[in-house]
Measured scan of single mutants.
Amino acid sequence: NQASVVANQLIPINTALTLVMMRSEVVTPVGIPAKDIPRLVSMQVNRAVPLGTTLMPDMVKGYA
């Protein structure tokens, strides 16, 4: 199973992502692939993302 990107903490709306905010985990449904973590750094979330939430492409500005 492919690992997805999961929030390692509460990420407030419009926050630029950093490595410490994200972890990889095998979850259902599948979200953004963990291999894309380096690409996500500095991108902003367009909503508040609670701890443990799988990041989906529509949550990150400029990803999709």
Results as ranks from 00 to 15, higher is better:
1 N>M: 15
1 N>G: 15
1 N>R: 03
2 Q>Y: 15
2 Q>F: 14
3 A>M: 13
3 A>H: 14
3 A>V: 06
4 S>D: 01
4 S>I: 02
4 S>Y: 03
5 V>Y: 02
5 V>N: 02
5 V>A: 09
5 V>M: 02
5 V>R: 02
6 V>Q: 04
7 A>H: 01
7 A>R: 01
7 A>I: 06
7 A>P: 01
7 A>M: 08
8 N>L: 05
9 Q>G: 05
9 Q>T: 12
9 Q>I: 09
9 Q>C: 08
10 L>V: 13
10 L>E: 12
10 L>A: 13
10 L>N: 08
11 I>V: 07
11 I>F: 01
11 I>R: 01
13 I>S: 12
13 I>R: 09
14 N>Y: 08
14 N>A: 06
14 N>H: 10
14 N>E: 09
15 T>C: 05
15 T>I: 08
15 T>L: 06
15 T>M: 08
15 T>G: 05
15 T>A: 08
16 A>N: 05
16 A>M: 10
16 A>P: 13
17 L>N: 00
17 L>G: 00
18 T>W: 03
18 T>V: 05
18 T>D: 03
19 L>F: 07
19 L>A: 06
19 L>D: 04
19 L>Y: 11
20 V>D: 04
20 V>L: 14
21 M>W: 02
21 M>A: 05
21 M>Q: 04
21 M>T: 03
21 M>N: 05
22 M>K: 00
22 M>W: 02
22 M>H: 00
23 R>M: 04
23 R>H: 04
24 S>D: 14
24 S>R: 07
24 S>E: 11
24 S>F: 11
24 S>W: 08
25 E>F: 06
25 E>G: 06
25 E>Q: 11
26 V>Q: 10
26 V>W: 10
26 V>N: 11
26 V>L: 12
27 V>R: 07
27 V>C: 07
27 V>M: 05
28 T>W: 05
28 T>V: 07
29 P>G: 04
29 P>M: 07
29 P>V: 08
30 V>H: 14
30 V>R: 04
31 G>P: 01
31 G>T: 01
31 G>F: 01
31 G>R: 00
32 I>N: 00
32 I>K: 00
32 I>F: 03
32 I>D: 00
32 I>P: 01
32 I>V: 07
32 I>M: 03
33 P>G: 06
33 P>S: 09
33 P>R: 05
33 P>H: 14
33 P>E: 14
33 P>L: 13
33 P>N: 13
34 A>R: 04
34 A>L: 03
34 A>T: 08
34 A>H: 05
34 A>V: 13
35 K>A: 15
35 K>D: 15
36 D>K: 04
36 D>H: 08
36 D>M: 05
36 D>V: 05
37 I>V: 11
38 P>K: 05
38 P>R: 04
39 R>I: 08
39 R>A: 09
39 R>S: 11
39 R>N: 06
40 L>G: 01
40 L>K: 00
40 L>D: 00
40 L>F: 02
40 L>Y: 03
41 V>L: 14
41 V>W: 04
42 S>I: 03
42 S>G: 12
42 S>V: 03
42 S>E: 08
43 M>A: 05
44 Q>M: 13
44 Q>Y: 14
44 Q>S: 11
45 V>T: 13
45 V>L: 12
45 V>H: 02
45 V>M: 08
45 V>Y: 00
46 N>P: 03
46 N>Y: 14
46 N>F: 14
46 N>H: 11
47 R>M: 10
47 R>W: 15
47 R>D: 07
48 A>L: 11
48 A>E: 09
48 A>I: 08
49 V>Y: 02
49 V>L: 09
49 V>P: 02
49 V>Q: 02
50 P>V: 14
50 P>K: 10
51 L>D: 13
52 G>R: 06
52 G>S: 13
53 T>G: 14
53 T>L: 13
54 T>R: 03
54 T>N: 02
54 T>S: 04
54 T>H: 02
54 T>P: 07
55 L>D: 00
55 L>M: 12
55 L>K: 01
55 L>C: 02
56 M>F: 09
56 M>I: 07
57 P>F: 14
57 P>M: 07
58 D>N: 11
58 D>V: 08
58 D>T: 06
58 D>Y: 12
60 V>M: 04
60 V>K: 00
60 V>I: 14
60 V>G: 01
60 V>E: 00
60 V>R: 01
60 V>N: 01
63 Y>V: 03
63 Y>E: 04
63 Y>N: 03
64 A>T: 15
64 A>L: 15
64 A>K: 08
64 A>D: 09
64 A>P: 06
